[in-house]
């Protein structure tokens, strides 16, 4: 390469790198400012410290609950419920979609009911779940599943049906069985839809689990929020909220990385 171009390229790269750093630094500053202002506002009573708590109080509670071990239990329970709700909702939705694809008659019969179920705010069914599964963790997980499984079924079933007819014709000319058609064409063709369903379902599972814990639980981060609210311990509410934000973001990132990994051969 000619030296002048080379120099320009180096300059360009430096510029890009610098801009990237500015973004990261700005993001950090924003975060620190937020907590700093929160602390100051609380100390000087600009906001009611009893309601809005303060970073230092939240931190104090965090240390306390970490030391006595209760925080691990709450976090563990919520994480377990969310992961189970997410997995069962996603896998169950895909299985149901496969079932509907396999039995077209059944899918036509069930169509209006699935649409109705999808339109129903699933949270409204919470009390029913408690009656069915009892006031325990199963109900919470069921809430996480319920909120994601119907929409997953609909989206994946739609993807199955939108598979290019000509790709199916190709395997038909080789005399493919229904199972072969599903395995070799329908499933891989719908793979991107399934992977993007993962990302949507992480968010939905969190909604379901937190709401589920509001309703029945005596453990978990959702429980901490409701309990803290009832006993007017807003340190606990805030701590739980911050943890939910952090954990949900982390889980979303993990799924995003998983998505990249699963899609590495596709564009």
């Amino acid at each position: 390469m000619n030296p002048k171009l080379h120099e320009q390229h180096a300059k360009f790269r430096l510029q890009q790198k610098r801009e990237k750093w500015y973004v990261v630094i700005s993001q950090l500053i924003l975060l620190i400012t937020f907590f700093f202002l929160w602390e100051i506002a609380s100390r000087f009573n600009w906001i009611d410290p009893l309601i809005f708590s303060s970073p230092s109080n939240v931190w104090g509670l965090f240390i306390e609950m970490t030391v006595n071990g209760t925080l691990y239990t709450h976090m563990g329970v919520t994480l377990l419920e969310t992961i189970l709700g997410f997995l069962i909702g996603t896998i169950g939705g895909i299985l149901m979609a496969a079932f509907l694809w396999w039995f077209p008659f059944l899918s036509r019969v069930l169509d209006p009911y699935i649409v109705a179920l999808n339109a129903t705010p699933k949270v409204a069914l919470g009390p029913m779940l408690i009656v069915i599964f009892g006031a325990n963790m199963t109900s919470v997980i069921a809430m996480g599943v319920l909120i994601s499984i119907i929409v997953t079924t609909l989206v994946i079933y739609g993807a199955f049906n939108e598979t290019d007819k000509n790709l199916i014709k190709v395997v038909d000319t080789f005399g493919a069985s229904t199972l072969q058609k599903f395995y070799y064409v329908i499933l891989p063709a719908s793979y991107p839809s399934m992977v993007s369903a993962l990302k949507v379902n992480v968010g939905l599972a969190w909604v379901g689990v937190i709401v589920g814990e509001y309703l029945v639980s005596n453990e978990g981060l959702g429980y901490m929020i409701i309990y803290g609210f009832q006993v007017f311990n807003f340190n606990m509410v805030m701590l739980s909220l911050v943890l939910v934000v952090i954990l949900a973001t982390l889980m979303y990132q993990v799924v995003a990385i998983l998505e990249k990994f699963l899609m590495r051969k596709r564009r």
Binding site: D164, N166, L167, K169, V170, T173, P188, Y191, K265, R266
Partner: peptide, 13 residues
């Protein structure tokens, strides 16, 4: 009997 379609319809994945 082999059948060749108007376009290749190779499986993109």
């Amino acid at each position: 009997i082999g059948y060749m379609l108007q376009q290749d319809y190779l499986f993109p994945w």
